[in-house]
Structures are given as structure tokens and as C-alpha cells.
Design a binder for these strands. Structure first.
Length: 384
RNA sequence: GGCCUCGUGGCGGAAUGGCUACGCAGAGGACUGCAAAUCCUUGUAUGGGGGUUCGAUUCCCUCCGAGGCCUCCA
């Protein structure tokens, strides 16, 4: 049974690691498993019982919330308010309805571990107190998580750790991220709008396109982590275009210093949206690659944020586009030559006819003049 | 039912007790034979109603709307 559980979590963890890596996330230093920390959990539970913060009843070990005067501080709830609106009958063995399980006995066919209270399993929450203590210490700096976990999970985690170790805080800062929505609706399997990171990267299931990991990452950085993210095709299109323009200004410039304003924005509660605004300003300052200092700063800042590493802008923009199905240079070049000849003699109707023909093939032309010689040039790309 | 969080222009999205960033779209202009791309300029917003204040989008109350949590498990 314990092995079967491990096999399931292994698969999920591997997918998670692959996805976050594709988005440019660094690999965590430590990725502890609850099942590898049973002894540590038992030790904390024993301490809590000894400190009178926990008690044994009906074979369970329960945490006594009333033993902690400021229980509920994180979620801004009081025990009284919780009780007043409770919809579910209180279990008789609990001294207070808010008391929660630290250890629960297992039947023979349930997974379990030996403990001073018999073969059983830990309650939810205690694994986090045990593992954070083991790897980060009795108190630490930042604790993250989804905002749906604020109550009861994080509240109970705090109660366990503080009462076991005797500190006023567990973590100095709590960062809770908002929920993900898709095109204005919550993402759920029943609504059929469920999309995974690997699907965004590897399939055309969302917006009939594959999306480069940099674009996906940038679309997430666009809003504050605390707010809900509405995941839309429009946002990806917009960010893909922005990244194309930014990298066009940055490519070829050695990264120098990261933008001070970006660092300042990130230092203010990880204000990534403000950082993106700074980059838009930096992009304007780059002035079409004429401001070398701004371009070098762009180069450094994009790399710092993990949304670029020197790739050709078009490789990011055209990521996932099936080049083989489109026209080739051999198809297009003769038509461009003909059109340049027509333009040279001001035969505009023929020139436009050829351009329309190419548009029908899905080709977008871009005319330019060589700044040095004044010679007319034309480049093309597949219209997207 | 109780509690928590949130409500900013056409759209996305920051910030703030006193000129409301930034982007997209829109409008005007430059460039171009005309386009495309690029660049410049520019209009538009703090859900409704009260209150505190010299002044409220920001603080308080209330209503409306959205999301979350409230048994076990994660």
C-alpha cells in the first residue's frame, strides 16, 4: 500500500518538475516527502501532548485550539465566529469543534505507520510543521501557498509549529497566490476548460497554437501573484508580441546590469506587473536598437527574469508553427524579385497584384530601404 | 447561514488620503507609391448609496456582484 502511494506521487511529481522546468523555474534544493518524515511528525506530536496543546481521545490525537490564545490570526477568524455559523454537527470527542487531528488510527486495510498511539497515520498539516522544521528551522522567512489553504491548513500549521517550538511566528511572511481562471471561468474538468502547462507547450489545444515557455512565463508575470489570473489566448498573443519586440531590441547586446527599477518593483511584494511596465519603458528607451545602453540593460533584465536567454526573437514568436507546411523561400523569392522589378519602374498595379498573390498564400511582405545605399529590399514572413 | 478576500477605462492590469502607471484595442500623425512593420501623439475608469476629512478610488458603514473557506482527506 505504501509503495502504491509512492508510485502515484512519483508520477505527479515528475510531471510537475518537467512543467516548472519548461517555464524556467529553478529546481528546489529540497523536495521532502511526508512519508519520509513520519518519525519527525511523531516527535512534534509528543511535544504538543507534553505541552498540553494536544490530547488523546477516541484513539485520535487532537490539537486543542483553545490552548493557543491568538489562534486564527492569519485567516482573521475567531473561534467564536467559526462556531456560530457551523453547519456540521460537532464530533463528540472533540473538546472544541475547531480541534483537529494530529494522529488517526488506521484500520488493517488502510495505510499506516507504527506510533506510540498505535498503527495509524498523521493528520493533514503536521507534515508541513515537521518538514519545515527539519529543513528550514523552527522559524523561517517566507511561506507560500494557494489562498484556499489559508484556513484551515496554514492556520493549523502555524498553531502546531508555534506551540511545539515556542515562537510568536512560524514564518515571517506568508505569500498566498490567487486562483487560475480560463477565459473568465474557473478552470475545472467538468467545464472542459482544463489546460495543463505541458498542453500549452506541446499541443495546439489552447488558441490553436503551441506557446513557448517564455511566453507562458511572461503571461504569468503580468499580474500580481495575489490576484486571480484569468488565462486567455489574448493575453498569450499580447505577451508573445511584447517579448518579440523586447528581444528584438536585446539580441546581440551583451547583458550588463539588470534594471534597478525592475529590482525595486520585485522587492515590493514581488510586484511583477510593475516590473513588466518598467520593461515596456525600457523598450521605448531602446529606440529601435539605437540606444546601446538601454539594449544591454534589456538583455540583462530579460535573462534575469527568465523570459529570454539569447534566442532569436522569431524562434520564440514562431514557436510551434509548422514551417514545413508553409511556403518556402524558393517559392517566394522569385515573386519578390518580380515585384521589386515592377516597383523599380513604378508599375504599382503589378506590384500590388504580386503582393496580393503572396497574401493569399499566407505571406506578409515587409518593404524597407537600405539606410546606407537607399536600395529597396523586401523581406517576408508567414502571416500569423 | 457564518467568516475571509476582491470589485479600477472597450479589454488586461499596477498604485494611491491630494496630478489614476503600463500594455492591448481605438483615434490622429510620421515613414511608405500604397501597405505591413516601426515610431510619435492622444481620448476614455476607481460597482451603488451613506459617513469621516479641507480633500476619498484609497479609511468606516451598508447594499449589489464575484471568488474562497467553514466534516473527512489532500
Amino acid at each position: 500500500m505504501n509503495e502504491a502511494i509512492r508510485a502515484v506521487t512519483e508520477t505527479t511529481a515528475d510531471q510537475f518538475m518537467a512543467d516548472t522546468k519548461a517555464l524556467g523555474c529553478l529546481e528546489p534544493d529540497v523536495q521532502p516527502r511526508a512519508t519520509d518524515n513520519i518519525a519527525e511528525m511523531i516527535a512534534i506530536i509528543q511535544t504538543l501532548i507534553a505541552n498540553k496543546h494536544a490530547y488523546v481521545a477516541d484513539g485520535e490525537v487532537l490539537f486543542s485550539v483553545t490552548s493557543m490564545p491568538d489562534y486564527g490570526r492569519l485567516s482573521n477568524r475567531t473561534l467564536d465566529e467559526q462556531q456560530a455559523g457551523a453547519r456540521v454537527a460537532v464530533e463528540a470527542h472533540k473538546r472544541n469543534p475547531g480541534d483537529f487531528v494530529l494522529w488517526k488510527l488506521s484500520s488493517a486495510d488502510e495505510p499506516g505507520w507504527d506510533s506510540p498511539w498505535g498503527r495509524g497515520r498523521p493528520g493533514w498539516h503536521i507534515e508541513c510543521s515537521a518538514m519545515s522544521n527539519r529543513y528550514l528551522g523552527e522559524t523561517f522567512d517566507i511561506h507560500g501557498g494557494g489562498l484556499d489553504l489559508i484556513f484551515p491548513h496554514h492556520e493549523n500549521e502555524i498553531a502546531q509549529s508555534r506551540c511545539a517550538f515556542g515562537h510568536d511566528v512560524m514564518a515571517n511572511v506568508w505569500m498566498h497566490n490567487g486562483f487560475l481562471q480560463v477565459e473568465g471561468e474557473k478552470m475545472s474538468k467538468s467545464l472542459g476548460n482544463f489546460i495543463t502547462i505541458s498542453e500549452l507547450l506541446e499541443t495546439k489545444n489552447f488558441g490553436s497554437n503551441k506557446w513557448h515557455g517564455y511566453v507562458v512565463r511572461l503571461a504569468m508575470l503580468r499580474s500580481n501573484y495575489r490576484q486571480p489570473i484569468d488565462w486567455t489566448v489574448d493575453a498569450l498573443v499580447e505577451m508573445r508580441k511584447a517579448l518579440f519586440n523586447w528581444t528584438t531590441n536585446a539580441i546581440g547586446f551583451e547583458p550588463t546590469k539588470v534594471s534597478e527599477d525592475v529590482l525595486e518593483a520585485l522587492s515590493d511584494d514581488l510586484n511583477t506587473a510593475a516590473a513588466v511596465a518598467v520593461i515596456h519603458n525600457l523598450n521605448r528607451a531602446a529606440a529601435n536598437r539605437t540606444n546601446a545602453e538601454a539594449c544591454a540593460e534589456m538583455s540583462a533584465t530579460l535573462r534575469f527574469l527568465g523570459i529570454w536567454n539569447g534566442e532569436r526573437p522569431d524562434d520564440i514568436f514562431s514557436y510551434g508553427y509548422d514551417v514545413q507546411s508553409g511556403p518556402s523561400d524558393a517559392d517566394v523569392a522569385p515573386l519578390i524579385t518580380d515585384r521589386l522589378a515592377a516597383r523599380a519602374v513604378k508599375n504599382w498595379s503589378e506590384s500590388d497584384r504580386i503582393r496580393d498573390e503572396l497574401v493569399a498564400m499566407g505571406i506578409q511582405l515587409k518593404d524597407a530601404k537600405d539606410p546606407a545605399t537607399g536600395e529597396l529590399t523586401t523581406t517576408w514572413e508567414v502571416k500569423r
